[in-house]
Design a binder for these strands. Structure first.
Lengths: 122, 122
DNA sequence: AATCATCGATTACGTATGTAAACGGAACGC
DNA sequence: GCGTTCCGTTTACATACGTAATCGATGATT
């Protein structure tokens, strides 16, 4: 599986690819306080894990995701649900509800979602 | 923070505490294929992290959680929501909905939850 | 052509994690 | 009392991770 620091790089590539190491650094350097070498290492590990691919562009490489964000999000979320909420979504929502951590926006969106589910094939 | 293997031990203690190392092993040994030493190490790391406490009981110790499951669940879930869903619950539910990964039971419980929210102080 | 600048690749290193084995002291059985 | 058993404590070791520095090749400069 792909680590947290690696996921930061992936997020950049998911937003916009292909990108060079330099461009990636430019986008995360501020927030992460990373050096060039750090990004290079992470990219190499991601290559080894087949999570990104690299295509030559003159003297450098441009990187693109191979792993889809959807897939990563799903794996990661499912793993958490399995470990903490018997693998289901509702108990997680219940947890945040009990902790009063559902925003108005959350609640509105959840209502909307459930309504849409009503409208689907019976 | 507390690791995944450590969390397995915590789950045992959350279900029922205080427990001895031996009892913990008895409960997880099957599923995890762990040796005695593994459980001992994990317990020591948890002690160091102040996630459990130990009280002497004759020749051995009985361990109990110091970290509440609620707190652990919240930290872990919030971290995931922050990293993948802009910190909110609804987008996670939407993701599982799109992937057709909401069970009947999930949907029923979500409806129930939202109804209960209606009934609360205005 | 010799030199310099730029990249990726290789190597480094401390900490965390998973998984144990070894050690050492106290309690128990004789 | 003395060996044996039972625990916890200490030590071990491979892999992963975060974070870089360094090396080496390739292309640009003069």
């Amino acid at each position: 599986m792909i680590s947290e620091a690696e996921a930061v790089v992936m997020e950049v590539l998911w937003r916009n690819a292909p990108r060079s190491a330099e461009e990636i650094l430019a986008e995360v350097g501020q927030a992460q306080q990373w050096q060039e070498g750090t990004v290079k290492s992470l990219l190499n590990r991601l290559l080894k894990k087949k999570a990104v691919k690299a295509e030559r562009d003159g003297r450098r490489y441009l990187y693109s995701p191979l792993l889809a964000r959807e897939k990563y999000v799903h794996q990661t979320s499912k793993s958490l649900l399995d470990r903490l909420f018997e693998g289901r979504v509702a108990p997680l929502v219940a947890h945040f509800s009990e902790q009063r951590k559902l925003s108005k926006k959350d609640i509105a969106e959840l209502r909307q979602l459930l309504e849409e589910l009503d409208d689907e094939q019976p």
